[in-house]
Design a protein around this nucleic acid. Structure first.
Lengths: 348, 348
DNA sequence: CTGTTAGCGCATTCAC
DNA sequence: GTGAATGCGCTAACAG
């Protein structure tokens, strides 16, 4: 297969020499801004480049140009559908701008997050996008904030997805409004006695959704008693555990379990079923996010649609647009959510 | 927030000057191989670096060192759980090696794949990992092959996940054996009349799984009639459509629908339900991959577990290990699969 | 339009 | 041990 055992990639220098032109001409032919190169020479360069399998060294270009074509994305967990959809959006949008995306996972660990930001900063990415709900008051906030500030001072753009700190650019999804709308819709279906399964109190997203839901209920004159709020991990197993606990202590009239996200809701479905009840009929269930799976579980899950892919798109755009120079907190782009009613919440 | 309006990041040069040492000393203190630097000076450098928010320019390091700390990953669709799990594995393993992962999506388009490989090659990544089943005989294979060959010749490492072409390094999952094992297990449960819902004939993965399944059946003396093999898109909707078609023409004794992957199986579940039948009881269903959702659908889906995250891990390791120099086709690392029986295939 | 030259930020060989 | 000088691959003035 490999007859030529060359071990070092062809350099622009090689192309220039081989094509019998100067370095500059070769450079201009292959990348140069406005084509101010004789078409004949240009072709010759292009041909030799192809023949030599020349591939421009992006690192060298970055050093010479003083700017990269890279964007960095930080998520909590790549395998999580929530983040993978956002990532898909970011990557697609970046691709459209001919930018390369480098990605890392924090595993929800604030220390790792800081460490990764430090490393990624070395890439001199054009933008640094942080996705993932953060605890409301992390101790290391200061260090992260300083790091991000330094990055921005050096010309980088930080975009926060679904979080709002340090007065940085952000792309929000309106958790409160979405949750409120869900509450209204459920009340409209005839539900009156609710139980909410949510994440830790310090999780921003969880807190916002709970608050919004309560607001929605309040508008209908319904109050959510304290004991109706169950806290657990923001995961499928968390949803299962919390719901199981609820069932064990006795439903006590509760008609529906509302989870702070879909994966928790799916856990709730399983818990209900494992308790010998039929979700939807015996106890209704609703979630949040409308991940693809929501449609495929049985009964199909009522949820609040969050355009995650679009969120990713937006984040990238927001990172790039220089509009208004630095008007970070001004227009905290918000994407709208939408209640999707399905079989898991039949009309009562 | 930003009092100092510095617009350019601190350079190693700045650190050296500010610390009153030479460039070389600064470099050695911050990265240098073996610590041959006076501890006092070293500390001084470290401190000034911290004070100046110095962050080593990775591009510059790459140019100077002639090698990067980057790995590139190409998948078909980041949001697809199959790929996002693999990606999670790659990223985690890369992180352990202090490598940065850049990621791109081909959308299953061979032309884009080629284009992306070209672009990514410019990064001079240490390794290039390609995930995603490929059509058995793509026309542009030649160009891709040449590109990958050039990349390898230049010192790069290509690793193919779940595909095997050009005699490159590969990490396989034993689709045939897994499918055969599934067949055996299902026969053991009492099933005799099968229908298979699979992807296009040219999809490698689909083809292997079908072949393996037939082998397994053959061992039990069962033959799969041609009309029992339904082809459709390798997606949820494809599974739905194929199963719907099957139901429409009449089950004709078929006891179970076996899908080539879980998302198709989930589509089958819906199709069966929409036809007024109860999956599991009226028609059994089995899938392949054991994506997380498989556990959460109802009835829970029988499947073949594929350690996708591990697949990602392996791919990265395989990309890095220089063991045996070039023994590409020698040890085509294969990860084992495992049949997982669940409620969707009750004993008959 | 084309070629020469001087950096970009950093690692490293070589003298001291 | 430390510093000065050279070069990595490429771009961008700068002259011809």
């Amino acid at each position: 297969m490999g007859t030529s055992e060359r071990t070092t990639p062809a350099t622009l220098h090689d192309v220039a020499r081989e094509a019998g032109v100067s370095l500059a001409t070769a450079s201009r032919s292959l990348n140069g801004s406005t084509r101010k190169v004789n078409e004949e020479l240009r072709q010759r360069v292009l041909e030799t480049a192809a023949r030599l399998d020349y591939s421009p060294n992006l690192s060298a270009q970055a050093v010479a140009r003083g700017t990269t074509t890279t964007v960095a994305l930080l998520v909590a967990d790549i395998a999580d559908p929530y983040f993978s959809q956002i990532a898909a959006g970011v990557v697609a949008a970046a691709d459209a701008e001919h930018l390369i995306v480098t990605m890392a996972a924090t595993d929800g660990d604030a220390d790792r997050e800081l460490e990764l930001v430090r490393t990624l900063r070395g890439q001199r990415p054009r933008a640094l996008i942080l996705a993932g709900s953060r605890a409301i008051d992390e101790p290391s906030d200061g260090a992260l904030g300083a790091e991000l500030a330094a990055y921005e001072r050096a010309g980088g753009r930080v975009v926060l997805i679904s979080r709002n700190e340090y007065g940085l650019r952000t792309v929000q999804l309106d958790n409160r409004a979405g949750a409120a709308a869900l509450a209204t819709a459920l009340v409209g279906l005839g539900y009156r006695r609710f139980a909410v399964v949510t994440g830790g109190e310090r999780l921003r997203t969880a807190a916002d959704r709970l608050a919004g839901f309560c607001e929605g209920l309040a508008e209908a004159g319904i109050e959510l008693p304290d004991e109706a709020v169950l806290r657990a991990d923001f995961t499928r197993d968390g949803g299962y555990a919390a719901t199981a606990a609820l069932l064990e202590r006795g439903l006590d009239g509760v008609e529906i379990v509302v989870a702070a996200n879909d994966v928790m809701a799916i856990g709730a479905l399983s818990a209900i079923r494992d308790a010998g009840l039929e979700p939807g009929r015996d106890v209704a269930v609703a979630g949040f996010d409308d991940i693809p799976t929501a449609r495929d579980v049985t009964p199909a899950l009522t949820s609040v649609r969050v355009p995650l892919v679009e969120l990713g798109h937006l984040a990238l755009r927001r990172a790039l647009d220089d509009a208004g120079a630095d008007a970070p907190a001004d227009a905290p782009a918000e994407v709208a959510t939408e209640v999707v009613l399905r079989a898991s919440t039949p009309r009562r």
